[in-house]
Amino acid sequence: MNKLIIILLTILSISCTKRDKIESVFITNNIEYWECIDYCYNSRTYFQFKDNGTIDAYLLYTKEGFRLFNNDGDLINDPGTWSIKNDSTFIWNKEVYKIEKLAKNEILLSYYHYEIKDKKCYIRLSKLIKTPKGPKRLDELNKIKK
Score class of each variant (00 low, 15 high):
Phe90Arg: 00
Val96Met: 02
Ile7Met: 12
Lys98Pro: 01
Asn142Trp: 10
Phe69Asn: 14
Lys117Arg: 06
Leu128Arg: 02
Ile84Thr: 08
Gly65Ser: 13
Asn42Ala: 13
Phe49Asp: 05
Tyr46Phe: 08
Leu59Trp: 08
Lys98Ile: 11
Lys101Ile: 08
Thr62Ile: 12
Tyr112Ile: 08
Lys21Cys: 08
Asp51Gly: 04
Ser83Met: 11
Lys94Ile: 11
Leu8Trp: 00
Gly134His: 04
Leu75Met: 11
Arg137Ala: 05
Lys18Thr: 11
Phe66Trp: 14
Ile107Val: 13
Lys136Cys: 14
Thr62Ser: 15
Pro132Met: 09
Lys136Gln: 09
Leu68Gly: 07
Lys63Pro: 00
Tyr122Arg: 10
Tyr58Gln: 02
Lys63Ile: 12
Tyr114Ser: 05
Ser15Gly: 11
Arg44Gly: 02
Asp38Pro: 09
Lys104Gly: 02
Asp38Met: 07
Leu125Asp: 06
Glu100Arg: 02
Cys121Ala: 13
Thr45Cys: 01
Thr62Pro: 06
Lys127Thr: 13
Ile99Arg: 00
Ile84Leu: 06
Trp92Tyr: 08
Ser88Pro: 06
Val25His: 04
Lys94Pro: 05
Glu95Met: 15
Trp82Cys: 03
Asn2Glu: 15
Ser24Pro: 07
Thr89Trp: 12
Leu60Lys: 09
Lys120Pro: 03
Gly53Asp: 05
Asn2Gln: 02
Asp38Val: 04
Leu125Met: 06
Ser110Gln: 12
Tyr114Asn: 07
Asn2Trp: 01
Lys85Glu: 14
Thr81Lys: 10
Asp72Lys: 14
Lys50Cys: 12
Thr89Gln: 14
Arg67Thr: 15
Ile123Val: 14
Lys145Glu: 08
Lys133Pro: 08
Arg124Val: 09
Asn52Ala: 04
Tyr33Cys: 07
Asn2Cys: 09
Phe26Gln: 03
Glu100His: 08
Lys101Glu: 14
Ile55Met: 03
Ile91Arg: 00
Ile129Tyr: 01
Glu95Phe: 01
Ile76Trp: 07
Asp118Ser: 06
Leu12Thr: 09
Glu106Tyr: 15
Leu138Cys: 08
Lys18Gly: 02
Phe90Gly: 00
Leu9Val: 07
Lys63Trp: 15
His113Phe: 05
Asp72Tyr: 13
Lys133Gln: 02
Pro135Glu: 02
Lys101Cys: 01
Lys120Val: 12
Lys133Cys: 04
Asn105Trp: 13
Glu100Gln: 10
Val96Gly: 00
Tyr41Glu: 15
Trp34Val: 11
Leu59Tyr: 15
Tyr46Glu: 08
